[in-house]
């Protein structure tokens, strides 16, 4: 019976019910609209800040930091991870260090970053890089170590070695693992960036985190909730637009699809 309905029907109904209930509850005056704004208020804030350009500029500042920080972290992480996989003593030192630092939430870097770089763009970038780097290092190390030896042996007897072996065999074979490491790195970078932006007023740019914090200071809960929604959406979109298609293509082309 229920299986006859198209799949999106039930989630849509549930969403309408939830949002409608929320709207009704706030309007009925049982809670303070200041502390708990109705969906329509959040939407109005969204629309106003979109028109004023505030939201887009904040999103732009945040995305720029995220992309640059992530790119630096990934660009450092891939060769370092490969080195960890390749050289025993690097794995025993840097690899272990990475393992430790990866468990450290990267907000913990904020105080140091501020001391080292001042209240500047570099400080935020540093925090984002620290969020990305260790996850990528570990993922690359793991996936390189897990490349089936048979591929290496086959390639070697065909005359492949050193750089050719790395670029044509080890890296393509490790790619699925590297990608999921990148995804994790991206998620960490996103979290650490938000934390940094909320924590510190960075004079060099007003990002989404700063916008959220400003909402708190102005007691504009519609703004706080609106920014939270945008942060969520951006995270989802990055996954949907960038990681998911790449991952799907990778799985399909190698017959890993279930």
């Amino acid at each position: 019976m229920a299986s006859k309905l198209p799949r999106p029907v039930i989630p849509t109904l549930v969403a309408i019910l939830l949002v409608g209930g929320w709207e009704w509850y706030v309007r009925s005056g049982r809670v303070s609209e200041v502390l708990f704004p109705a969906p329509s208020h959040v939407l109005r804030w969204f629309w106003d800040s979109l028109l004023s350009g505030e939201l887009l500029s904040a999103t732009w500042v945040t995305m720029r930091r995220l992309v640059i920080g992530f790119a630096i972290g990934a660009a450092l992480g891939v060769p370092l991870g490969a080195l960890c996989a390749r050289v025993r003593w690097v794995r025993d030192t840097l690899g272990v260090l990475a393992l430790g630092l990866q468990t450290l939430p990267s907000v913990c870097w904020v105080p140091l970053a501020l001391l080292w770089f001042g209240i500047r763009e570099e400080a935020v970038l540093f925090v984002v890089v620290m969020g990305t780097l260790w996850a990528v290092v570990l993922a690359v190390q793991e996936s390189v170590l897990n490349v089936p030896p048979l591929y290496l042996r086959a390639a070697q007897t065909m005359g492949s070695k050193s750089w050719h072996l790395w670029s044509r065999v080890i890296f393509p074979a490790a790619l699925p693992g590297v990608l999921s490491g990148m995804k994790q790195g991206w998620a960490f970078a996103w979290r650490s960036l938000m934390a940094a932006e909320i924590f510190v007023v960075i004079v060099t740019g007003f990002g989404l985190g700063s916008l959220l914090n400003a909402g708190r200071e102005l007691l504009r809960m519609d703004q706080v909730m609106g920014v939270m929604a945008v942060v969520m959406l951006v995270g989802l979109l990055a996954d949907l637009v960038f990681f998911a298609p790449f991952e799907r293509w990778l799985r399909r082309s190698r017959g890993l699809e279930r």
Binding site: Y151, R153, A154, T157, M158, P172, R254
Partner: peptide, 19 residues
């Protein structure tokens, strides 16, 4: 060391899934 002059065809096919 392995070299191009001695090619091995392995018992399990070692085809590369990314090609």
């Amino acid at each position: 060391a392995p070299g191009r002059d001695r090619l091995v065809m392995f018992q399990q096919d070692a085809l590369f899934p990314w090609l």
